[in-house]
């Protein structure tokens, strides 16, 4: 078990290195001269070649790319992601200010989605091909095919404008969190419901379920002890991926509800051509993704003995 976890952590280390290389490359592969972009941000549109060259030298863009990368990595390892080209704020600080908002939204959305998806998926599978199943699956299909922005607007119209129950945008107390979390949660639930159902059906057809029946166990025991643990494995993987996406910021929903999360920061920085900020955000999101996957892998090991006792 410990060996497995260490192996995973070791792998995450390489993933993170990969992430830094890709992130760094985006800045250099992107069309345009980074020095020029920085100079524009610093001195405005009326530039002289001297100003650009000055930036190139002071920012170190004249040295070979790998030297630049190593320098950048050195800073990153000291938790220094540099400063925003536009606002000159510390990038890491800017991200960490946004983190609580993103985190709250991500966690609540995931909780909502799992609270809907897992029970509905289970009921749907157990009552396969009945009216209940068809209803659940139709609802899920509707959920999958409803775009986030439309559902968000619909919820704003209903709960904010018509019923005047909840604020339509902004960040502050729990009330602000409700609508964006429901928008994200329900749309994610739709996919997870279908996954839970198919995974349940898959397990229900396994021979060991027949063995459990042959022992004379009742349906509830079979479902809780024998089916659920096996059926949840793919659902957990999927939920892990989802939380990765959520923590990376959900651009559309954050924009609709003016939610000050990382997704919104990223989009704003792209519009402002704030390369340094984009680089910082992408790196941060990438690392977050790698670590949520690590967490999923570890959870997996707790649930599945075949992984726990793997001797590699």
């Amino acid at each position: 078990m410990l060996k497995y976890i260490l192996k995973r952590i070791f792998l995450v280390f390489f993933v993170v290195i990969g992430v830094t290389i890709v992130t760094f490359s985006t800045m250099h592969l992107a069309p345009g001269d980074p020095a020029e972009v920085i100079a524009v941000a610093r001195y405005g549109d009326d530039l002289t070649q001297e100003q650009i060259d000055w930036v190139r030298v002071t920012e170190g863009f004249d040295s070979p790319v790998y030297i630049q990368y190593l320098k950048w990595i050195k800073h990153v390892m000291h938790f220094d992601l540099g400063r925003s080209l536009v606002t000159s704020h510390d990038i890491l600080e800017e991200i960490t200010i946004r983190l609580p908002a993103t985190f709250k939204l991500a966690v609540l959305s995931l909780v909502i989605s799992l609270c809907i998806a897992v029970p509905v998926g289970i009921v749907s599978a157990v009552k396969k091909n009945t009216v209940i199943d068809h209803l659940c699956m139709s609802a899920a299909l509707l959920g999958v095919s409803t775009p986030n922005f439309w559902l968000g607007l619909l919820l704003i119209w209903l709960f904010s404008l018509t019923l005047n129950l909840l604020p339509s945008y902004g960040y502050g107390n729990f009330e602000h969190l409700v609508l964006p979390a429901i928008t994200l949660g329900t749309s994610m639930a739709a996919i997870t419901t279908r996954l839970t159902r198919s995974s349940m059906l898959d397990v229900l057809n396994q021979e060991y379920i027949l063995t459990a029946k042959a022992k004379g166990l009742d349906e509830k025991t079979i479902l809780l002890r024998h089916v659920l643990k096996n059926a949840m494995l793919p659902v957990i993987t999927f939920a892990g991926l989802q939380i990765g996406f959520l923590l990376g910021g959900t651009v559309i929903v954050e924009t609709i509800f003016a939610w000050p999360g990382i997704g919104k920061l990223l989009v704003d920085s792209i519009y402002a051509r704030d390369f340094a900020m984009v680089q910082g955000c992408v790196l941060f999101i990438g690392i977050l993704f790698a670590f949520t996957n690590l967490l999923v892998d570890i959870t997996y090991a707790f649930l599945d003995p075949r992984i726990r006792y793997e001797n590699t």
Binding site: Q206, E207, Y208, L210, T211, A212, A214, R225, H226, K229, N230, L303, D304, P305, R306
Partner: peptide, 17 residues
Amino acid sequence: IGIILQNPSAALNPVLS
């Protein structure tokens, strides 16, 4: 009545001891 099903590899639940 006890029954031993075919194929013990598939007839045992992989996640329970």
